[in-house]
């Protein structure tokens, strides 16, 4: 560990804690609190909850919760990460780094999915679901067969192909030692030719676009001290709309609203209140939603937002639902406000 500090300094840094004075601040963490937050899983399996699942179960759970971004076969949609494939590509010109081809430890997949996924609904999956999803990702990478039961007990049986593919930072030997010489100041090279130009590639964002943003920013900022009342139609409760806008943050990763709204993983929601269910043009709805019928009103929205998958089993929307009634009320009021 002493490679980033001189040995003597390291010894000093590590030496004194025993003599440290305490301030008597904070309180003892309770076991329930530690259990609620301490969920990380280490390569040796420490931290794994009891549970199990196989790729067959996982396929359906993956389709419901993950496929909208990662693709039905973990192949990735748009710029979202590909989770499968890439075997043997790491030394290629454009390596494909997936769970199968790159990730050295299986614990990392479990840990990440368990604590940070699905995107926008983190920490809603049960341990069995996580085991099943991980089994399905392994299956998608041809690393286990579909019956393989992944559990806290079989976890260490899985061999990750790239487990031996990593070395610890060796810059001190391979780089620093070469690059500490007094640098050249004159006649350092014979000629200088341009070998590549950024303007030829032309991938830099246009400044015009940025200036439009500037205007918005400035206007918003200028309005801050004495904000003009929002032009809200009489029937709407402005406070509730504002509250709903906050709740809508949960939805923003997939849904856009407003003038410049674009279709993302979910449809644009302008005008959704009062519209027919599954009516957003060009959006590929799940079968169940496409054939559901009816309109989005207070009743249908309340049912859907409470538990999307309970109302429409098989919906692509991988969101667990809003837990608080007040959030649902606010959200509906907000959706009304973008529907006028």
């Amino acid at each position: 560990m002493s490679k980033f500090l001189k040995l003597t300094a390291a010894a000093l840094v590590l030496a004194t804690p025993a003599l440290a004075e305490k301030h008597g601040l904070g309180r003892t963490a309770m076991p329930e609190e530690i259990a609620a937050w301490d969920k990380d899983v280490s390569p040796d399996g420490t931290g794994l909850p009891v549970g199990s699942g196989n790729a067959l179960d996982g396929e359906e759970i993956f389709a419901d919760n993950c496929a909208i971004c990662h693709g039905d076969f973990a192949e990735g949609v748009d710029n979202w990460p590909k989770l499968a494939g890439g075997d043997g590509t790491l030394a290629d010109e454009d390596p494909l780094k997936t769970v199968g081809s790159y990730w050295p430890y299986l614990s990392t997949s479990f840990d990440y999915i368990n604590r940070s996924m699905p995107f926008g609904s983190a920490q809603t999956l049960e341990p069995d679901d996580v085991y099943a999803i991980v089994a399905y990702i392994l299956y998608s990478n041809d690393l286990v067969d579909e019956e393989f039961e992944l559990s806290n007990e079989t976890f260490l049986d899985v061999e990750m192909p790239n487990a031996g593919g990593f070395i610890t930072d060796d810059r001190a030997e391979t780089e620093y030692s070469q690059w500490r010489a007094e640098p050249c100041m004159e006649n350092c090279k014979e000629s200088v030719e341009i070998t590549m130009r950024a303007s030829v590639l032309d991938v830099t964002p246009e400044e015009e676009g940025a200036e439009a943003v500037v205007d918005d920013v400035v206007e918003e900022a200028a309005a801050e001290p004495a904000p003009e009342p929002e032009p809200v139609v009489a029937a709407l409760d402005a406070e509730l709309v504002a509250q709903g806008e906050k709740v809508f943050k949960k939805c923003k990763s997939c849904h856009q609203v407003g003038d410049n709204a674009k279709r993302k993983t979910g449809p644009v929601l302008n005008g959704v209140f009062g519209a027919d269910i599954a009516a957003s043009e060009g959006f590929k709805y799940s079968k169940v939603m496409a054939g559901y019928g009816g309109v989005w009103d207070e009743a249908t929205l309340t049912t859907f937002l409470t538990s999307p998958r309970k109302m429409m089993k098989g919906t692509k929307m991988s969101f667990a639902g809003l837990k608080k009634d007040e959030d649902i009320l606010a959200m509906i009021e907000y959706l009304k406000s973008v529907s006028q």
Binding site: F4, S42, P43, P95, Y102, Y112, G165, F166, D169, E175
Partner: peptide, 29 residues
């Protein structure tokens, strides 16, 4: 020991020419 979380294995590691990757490259040179 290290957790070897997503951000220290699948990301923030550096693939070298032969396909092996450096990890724990923490310092910004």
């Amino acid at each position: 020991g290290p957790v070897e979380s997503r951000e220290e294995t699948s990301k923030y590691t550096d693939v070298l020419e032969d396909g092996t990757a450096r990890k724990w490259t923490w310092v910004m040179d």
